[in-house]
Write a protein that binds this DNA or RNA. Structure first.
Length: 889
DNA sequence: CTATCAACTTAGAACCGTAGTT
DNA sequence: AACTACGGTTCTAAGTTGATAG
């Protein structure tokens, strides 16, 4: 599994191994034959792992890691100063500034920051992420306010006093007693242990010796919190508004920072308040106390010459840093897991935008390599080297089923897995080639899929499960994410497992959008868009727990549908009652009357009547309550009260009447028909009801479809936003219907730069009868200095270029992104940039220069495309990944 | 090497405000 | 006009990844 193996041709590797050792990690190639698939011929099989040095990465989980690293909250800031920077590029502690840029900070009234378009900038690469950074630090949560003395924890039946610090912790739990966390035994145990610790550190409980969780009754505290919530809710709108305004005002200055002199938003400027750690799934540490973060725990990161924001009264900051190679403003170490928490820039900041853009460009680039990668892993599936089999099989799973990489996890985390950490028990093999995946992935979300796989993948999985492997053992014992990623990088620098998820998600979305017909109302188009979105979410296994109210909601809708159907039937019966002859004329129309059986009808009827009555009662209650708030004399109140009561009584009488007639009608099937209800009117009514049933059913289906699938995660993280923008423009759906305000801000770069023809594909053109796909690359200095003056293909040059034998250099002007076209290259580069000027979309791309580089290499064509933006470059892609491409012609 | 860690992205739950009913 | 279901926002946990320490 050493990387040198990968570099060397297989045969060589094998020979080497065979020489050095009798048993190797090779597979007999015969095992590919159908007759003994999965079985290894030689008894001294390479697969056996009695071979201690036959490189299984490690024996899973058996060795307990000395997890004694014990999340120490370091009290000494200096211990951290000592820590060397972990990035190679940050070798020197000195902040790096681009030579010609002097840090300067713009004054506030130069408010042009709104329109800053980083995507028109030249150089988005490089290790320095900021040149100047100024900010106001962080907001701390309010100090704890002890509960009123009457609100107490009940221990063993008696109210007891607690020192404020312990009371606070008890309160954290009390607030959760009704939730799933509060009922979770692990949560309870962890909470109680930490609670006791805090209690004892603070002098203990004066009234009782608290030792038993089960003797604790938190309900009084819980009730108090509930009451407080209600009081807050009951405040007048003006009061609420005032409070909010005050809060906003005090937070205002923390919301923004100055990044390279431009005002940009800060993301999470509030320090996380203390509380109980809410680990997901079966997390061993769930319920542990997350301690209050002090200013002394916090490291600030800002420009050397930026003013250091004052620490809260009586406090000092833990440390002040000036590291401009990282993108955080403040950090602290959290005590439960010992991990670091950062204060970062907001999603709409340029820095976030840049890395988002790069992410999607990288995924787009993968498109040019995916065929080769697939071809490669297909053949590697039969490799004689165990590591190659595992590598190719893992790649298959990552590519086809969008699995995550699956890094190893420690004992004190929830037991969840991804591709490389899949274990024996996570897959079931059903011959001939069906695999059932059943495991918990990130956030303990279940991944369950029964799928058919490539026969060779099936064979390999069977080999990976072969005895003596048993439950608990890793399926992939010779690879881990770093091995897999290294393998990916041999195709394309920067290619990692997660890029596959991004790529496949965006590709799926584009394919789905391509299937949508441009017709119907805007709302219908949005529904179609969401359906496409949903296929992506399903691919990525983005789930949400079915809300507690879901079941009830569905039932409610179903009941509504039943009720509508019932009313429809009644209308039809009335029609017949008015004109019996109609039944003969149109029997189909009346057939469904028989679909409603007696029992169901009675149920529906009774439910309807009950509901009606309930409505009356509710209204009465509300009216009384409202009366209570009114500021009028007592006498007046009494009078009104009596009036309401009388009114209510009257309504109840009416209802009784309704009950009687309805039941009568049900029994006799004879209906009281008002004069206004003619056959025609009734038929109209039926139509109306039918439409309502249809709509409600659609709504129900949507609700069901969306109940378990979360669309937002894929929309935010996986689907190239330019696809959404393309959809918006092509289908004339306002972008507001597809992106919320925050998403529009986050994806401003996409909204600005994509048009209705935007595609993931990077230009297809035809050169000398060869159809070629052209990819993106990063321009080097020489190329970016080429200037171009026409939008048509300008020149075709033959020149030699670093590493490529022959190069066909095509320079062209392209209008806004590449256009996908199969039959004609020049079309792809075509005209119509005039209308883009009026569209107001993004004029800047007019300036954009496209550079196409086609490398001709023997019968194959090496293809690269450079895209330079006015002398600068947008993409972050290097040369290294160019590869042979056989023409489709 | 291997284990660990910093720094970043991705994730669902909780919370909150409001649009769309009834 | 009140209520409530819902969408949107906030919060913070849980991943990935590549560098580095030992």
């Amino acid at each position: 599994m050493s990387s040198s193996d990968e570099e060397t041709p297989l045969a060589t590797v094998r020979r080497k191994k065979l020489v050095s050792k009798h048993k190797t990690s090779t597979l007999e190639s015969e095992d590919d034959s159908d007759s003994n698939d999965g079985k290894i011929k030689t008894p001294t099989t390479s697969l056996s792992e009695e071979e201690a040095d036959d490189v299984p990465l490690k024996k899973r989980k058996i060795v307990t890691k000395t997890s004694v690293k014990k999340a120490t909250v370091k009290k000494e800031p200096s211990s951290q100063v000592a820590k060397a920077p972990r990035k190679r590029k940050a070798k020197s502690e000195e902040p790096k500034f681009k030579k010609d840029e002097t840090p300067k900070i713009k004054t506030e009234d130069e408010e042009e920051e709104e329109s800053y378009k980083w995507w028109e900038e030249q150089d988005l690469n490089g290790e320095v992420v900021w040149n100047t950074l100024e900010h106001n630090g962080v907001i701390f949560p309010p100090e704890y306010e002890p509960l009123p003395s009457k609100v107490k924890l009940i221990y063993d039946g008696k109210p007891v006093s607690l020192p404020p610090a312990a009371e606070e912790v008890a309160g954290f739990f009390a607030a959760l007693i009704e939730s799933d966390h509060g009922k979770n035994p692990v949560f309870q145990k962890n909470f109680f242990a930490d609670f006791l610790e805090v209690l004892n550190e603070n002098g203990g409980c004066p009234d009782a010796k608290i030792t038993d969780f089960n003797k604790c009754d938190f309900s009084k505290m819980f009730d108090y919190f509930q009451k407080q919530k209600e009081e807050k809710k009951a405040l007048s709108p003006q009061e609420k508004k005032r409070i909010k305004q005050e809060k906003d005002q005090m937070e205002e200055k923390y919301k923004f920072c100055y990044l390279n002199g431009r005002k940009e938003q800060v993301g999470n400027f509030r320090v996380e308040p203390p509380g109980l750690f809410r680990g997901r799934g079966a997390h061993p540490k769930t319920g542990k106390l997350k301690k209050r973060v002090q200013p002394e725990d916090i490291t600030l990161n800002l420009s050397k010459d930026a003013p250091v924001p004052p620490a809260p009264e009586g406090h000092t900051w833990g440390e002040i840093k000036h590291d401009n190679t990282v993108a955080w403003l403040a950090m602290w170490r959290e005590n439960v897991l010992g991990s670091v928490k950062y204060v970062r820039f907001a999603q709409n900041s340029s820095l976030k935008g840049i890395s988002d853009f790069k992410k999607f460009e990288k995924a787009r680039e993968l498109k040019n390599y995916i065929d080769a990668i697939r071809k490669d892993y297909q053949s590697k599936l039969r490799s004689e080297l165990m590591i190659d089999r595992q590598l190719s099989t893992a790649t298959y799973l990552i590519d086809i089923f969008a699995l995550r990489a699956g890094g190893e996890k420690s004992e004190d985390e929830a037991d969840t897995v991804g591709c490389c950490s899949l274990r024996y028990e996570h897959i079931f093999l059903k011959p001939p080639n069906t695999v059932v995946f059943d495991f918990l992935g990130k956030d303990s979300i279940r991944f369950y899929q029964e799928v058919e796989v490539d026969p060779q993948v099936f064979k390999n999985l069977r080999i990976f499960k072969k005895s003596p492997k048993k439950p608990g053992d890793n399926l992939f014992d010779r690879i881990d994410p770093s091995v897999v990623n290294k393998y990916f990088q041999s195709y394309l620098p920067g290619l990692t497992a997660k890029v596959f998820r991004t790529y496949n998600a965006s590709k799926t979305m584009q394919d789905q959008i391509d299937l949508i017909k441009n017709e119907g109302t805007v709302n219908e188009k949005v529904v179609n868009f969401n359906a496409a979105n949903r296929t992506v979410a399903t691919l990525c296994n983005h789930q949400r727990t079915v809300s507690k109210t879901h079941e009830a909601g569905v039932q409610k809708i179903n009941e509504r549908i039943e009720e509508m159907f019932w009313k429809k039937i009644i209308a039809k019966r009335m029609i017949l009652q008015l004109d019996k002859a109609l039944k003969k004329k149109d029997p189909a129309y009346f057939r469904e009357i028989d679909d409603l059986n007696k029992e169901t009808e009675q149920q529906v009827m009774e439910r309807f009547l009950d509901k009606e009555k309930e409505k009356l009662e509710k209204k009465y209650e509300r009216d009384l309550l409202k009366l209570g708030y009114e500021e009028i004399s007592k006498d007046e109140k009494k009078k009104r009260k009596d009036e309401l009561a009388a009114e209510h009584k009257e309504r109840l009488e009416k209802h009784k009447e309704l009950v009687k007639t309805t039941k009568q009608e049900f029994k006799t099937q004879k209906y009281e028909i008002k004069a206004s209800q003619t056959v025609e009117k009734l038929q109209q009514q039926v139509e109306k009801i039918e439409l309502r049933i249809k709509n409600t059913s659609l709504q129900l289906k949507d609700k069901e479809d969306n109940s378990q699938v979360a669309l937002s995660t894929s929309k935010i993280n996986y689907i190239d936003p330019r696809l959404t923008v393309m959809f918006s423009k092509k289908f004339d759906v306002p972008i507001e219907k597809l992106f919320t305000k925050t998403l529009r801000e986050k994806f401003a770069w996409a909204i600005d730069s994509a048009d209705e023809n935007w595609r993931l594909e990077l230009l297809q053109i035809e050169v000398a009868g060869l159809e070629v796909t052209v990819g993106l690359f990063q321009t080097s200095g020489e190329v970016s200095s080429v200037s171009i003056t026409s939008w048509r293909l300008l020149l075709v040059l033959l020149l030699s270029w670093s590493g490529l034998d022959l190069l066909l250099l095509v320079l062209g002007w392209l209008r806004r992104g590449s256009k996908h076209t199969r039959d004609s290259g020049t079309d792809g580069v075509s005209d119509s940039r005039t209308d883009s000027d009026t569209s107001g979309g993004g004029g800047h791309l007019r300036e954009q220069t496209w550079l196409l580089l086609l490398g001709l290499h023997r019968a194959a064509v090496r293809v690269v495309l450079g895209r330079c933006s006015h002398g600068g470059c947008l993409s972050g892609v290097g040369w290294g990944g160019s590869w042979s491409w056989s023409s489709s012609g």
